[in-house]
Amino acid sequence: MKNFLIIAGIISAFASCTSGTETKEEAATEQPAAESVQMTKDQLTSAGIETGKPTIADISKELQVNGVVDVPPQNIVSVSFPLGGYLKSTKLLPGMHVSKGEVIGVIEDQSLVQLQQDYLIAQSKLVYLQQEYDRQQLLSENKVSAEKVFQQVKSDFQSQQVLLKGFAEKLMLIGINPANLNDKNLSRSVAVRSPINGYVSKVNVNIGKYVNPTDVLFELINPDDMHAALTVFEKDINKVRIGQKVEMKFVDDPSKMYEGDVLIFTRNVDENRSGVVHCHFDKMPKNLMPGMFLSAIIKLDKASAVTVPDEAIVRYGGKQYVFEAIGDNQFGMVEVEVDTAANGLLAISSKSVDLAAKQLVLKNAYAVLGKMKNTAEE
């Protein structure tokens, strides 16, 4: 029994020592880096560590965004037929090119014949009323007939003028020139012509279908003014200015860059907390189609910033730091916010330290971090 108790005590003591060792190892592993570190001249030389003041430079920051090719509403044309009718023929397919004035469809209906007939009858009646008006005016001036008769003829003549003008406007609305219309060229069909040079995006009808005046037969796109619609998040929208330069590229050819500039941007944000920036292409890319995906870099306004080389920045614990020289070969960590700059430099800023006046480690900052971590573990 005594031997058993001795053995149990030994096991318990061994377990206690083992547990204590593991706890110390875990504590050493989790222990954060010290706030400062002392290094010797030999250590600085062997690690190639260099210090100096950061550079103050005017930099143009960049904003990376995504977007799509968009068409302004005034460049999208919906083609309808104002009087309705049956589609007799069309050869349009989505993607086809059409020229302004080109026949893109033919509509026929008896109401078209009736409109032309009404115009010619109104025109013939106006000729008679014109002659009657001239005759009654002469009689009225010579006091041969009553003034009341002349006034009635005058009213009929003016009403007929209005009626004829209304028919003429309806004819021009469907593409018939009233001046060329006579009893020998009445037609039951009318050609629908393209109002722009562009491409067909939608064909909503088929041959033989009756279309109402409100129905959209075709949708055409004018490609001359297509632009990029870029999505910019709320935190960055206030950095965008009209006229800023933009570099854009498409997913099908990411090696080719297209230049442009900011044309206009929305003054509000949507439910996704973002706004839209519309950009104009300096040179319109070929085979551009609405809805194509693109990525872009917006060149923001230049601003003075404190810049350091990339080697001066260390990433540790999910944050970014630089090392400040605070004494004789002694360095302290300073948390910074980092932004991109030009010529291989990074722009840095700190809410608590005036970095512009400090001596910082500009080269091989990770060697200082390594020494600091080793010192903390010791």
Score class of each variant (00 low, 15 high):
Met1Gln: 14
Phe4Tyr: 14
Phe4Glu: 14
Ser12Ile: 01
Phe14Lys: 00
Phe14Glu: 00
Phe14Ile: 06
Lys24Thr: 09
Glu25Ile: 14
Glu26Ile: 15
Glu26Pro: 10
Ala28Thr: 14
Glu30Pro: 04
Ser36Cys: 06
Val37Ala: 07
Val37Gly: 05
Val37Ile: 10
Thr40Asn: 00
Asp42Pro: 00
Leu44Lys: 03
Thr45His: 02
Thr45Ser: 03
Ala47Val: 14
Gly48Asp: 03
Thr51Gln: 03
Pro54Val: 12
Asp58Ile: 12
Glu62Thr: 09
Gln64Asp: 12
Gly67Tyr: 11
Val68Met: 09
Ile76Gly: 06
Ile76Glu: 12
Ser78Gln: 15
Ser80Ala: 12
Pro82His: 05
Leu83Asn: 12
Gly85Arg: 03
Tyr86Ser: 05
Gly95Ala: 01
Gly95Pro: 03
Gly95Glu: 00
Val103Phe: 01
Ile104His: 05
Gly105Cys: 01
Gln110His: 12
Leu112Glu: 01
Val113Leu: 14
Gln114Gly: 00
Gln116Glu: 06
Gln117Ala: 11
Asp118Thr: 05
Ala122Arg: 02
Lys125Met: 13
Asp134Asn: 13
Arg135Ser: 06
Gln137Lys: 13
Leu138Ile: 14
Glu141Ala: 12
Ser145Asn: 11
Ala146Phe: 01
Val149Gln: 15
Ser155His: 05
Asp156Trp: 10
Gln160Lys: 08
Val162His: 10
Phe167Gly: 04
Leu171Cys: 05
Leu171Pro: 02
Leu173His: 00
Leu173Ile: 07
Ala179Gln: 08
Ala179Arg: 04
Asn180Gly: 10
Leu181Ala: 02
Asn185Asp: 07
Asn185Cys: 07
Arg188Phe: 13
Ala191Ser: 11
Val192Ala: 04
Lys202Trp: 03
Asn204Thr: 07
Val205Leu: 01
Ile207Arg: 08
Gly208Glu: 01
Thr214Asp: 07
Asp215Val: 06
Leu217Val: 13
Leu220Gly: 08
Pro223Val: 11
Asp224Pro: 08
His227Phe: 10
Ala229Gln: 07
Thr231Tyr: 08
Val232Ala: 04
Phe233Gln: 11
Glu234Arg: 06
Asp236Lys: 02
Asn238Met: 09
Gln244His: 04
Val251Ser: 13
Asp252Asn: 15
Ser255Cys: 07
Asn268Phe: 04
Asp270Ala: 01
Glu271Cys: 03
Ser274Ile: 00
His278Tyr: 07
Cys279Lys: 03
His280Pro: 01
Asp282Phe: 15
Pro285Leu: 10
Met289Pro: 05
Met289Leu: 13
Phe293Lys: 11
Leu300Cys: 01
Asp301His: 08
Ser304His: 11
Ala305Lys: 13
Val306Gln: 02
Pro309Leu: 04
Pro309Arg: 05
Glu311His: 09
Val314Ala: 11
Gln320Met: 14
Glu324Tyr: 10
Ile326Arg: 13
Gly327Leu: 05
Asp328Ile: 08
Gly332Gln: 07
Met333Lys: 06
Glu335His: 00
Glu335Asn: 01
Glu337Met: 11
Thr340Pro: 09
Asn343Phe: 03
Gly344His: 04
Leu345Thr: 09
Lys358Gly: 04
Val361His: 00
Leu362Pro: 02
Ala365Asn: 01
Ala367Asn: 13
Val368Asn: 09
Gly370Ala: 12
Lys371Cys: 12
Ala376Pro: 10
